[in-house]
């Protein structure tokens, strides 16, 4: 009963995150949605760990701990990129669009 509850929660969270990634256009919301998806996978792994008949399995717990750190690294970089991207957006709005393509590839 408990297993089914948590499995349903994990699956629903994953689908919810995916749905929000698809339909939201705001970047912060998309990032949050991706984080919710990641949490759903973590929840499933921990469920596997906790429901092991021989006792708690430490390997998924270690995997999730690693996953959390990776998720926070990606989120931190994405949020910084977001801030600078918005600032560049503003700058482009101010200077007008004529030199918008000035910074071409190099």
């Amino acid at each position: 009963m408990t297993v089914m509850l948590y499995a349903t929660t994990a699956a629903t969270l994953f689908a919810l995150g995916l749905y929000a990634v698809l339909v939201r256009t705001g970047l912060i919301h998309r990032l949050l949605a991706a984080n919710v998806m990641a949490t759903a996978v973590f929840l499933f792994l921990i469920l596997v760990s906790a429901e092991n008949p021989e006792g708690v399995d430490a390997i998924p717990q270690a995997m999730v701990l690693t996953g959390i750190v990776i998720a926070v690294s990606l989120t931190a970089f994405a949020l910084a990129l977001l801030r600078y991207l918005q600032a560049a957006d503003d700058e482009e709005d101010q200077t007008g669009s004529q030199d918008g393509r000035q910074n071409g590839p190099d």
């Binding site: 089914m4 499995a7 349903t8 994990a10 699956a11 629903t12 994953f14 689908a15 919810l16 995916l18 749905y19 698809l22 499933f44 469920l47």
Partner: peptide
């Protein structure tokens, strides 16, 4: 997404 949730829940 609803289909995905149902399928994944059963699988998990």
């Amino acid at each position: 997404s609803i289909l995905l949730a149902a399928g994944l829940a059963w699988l998990m």
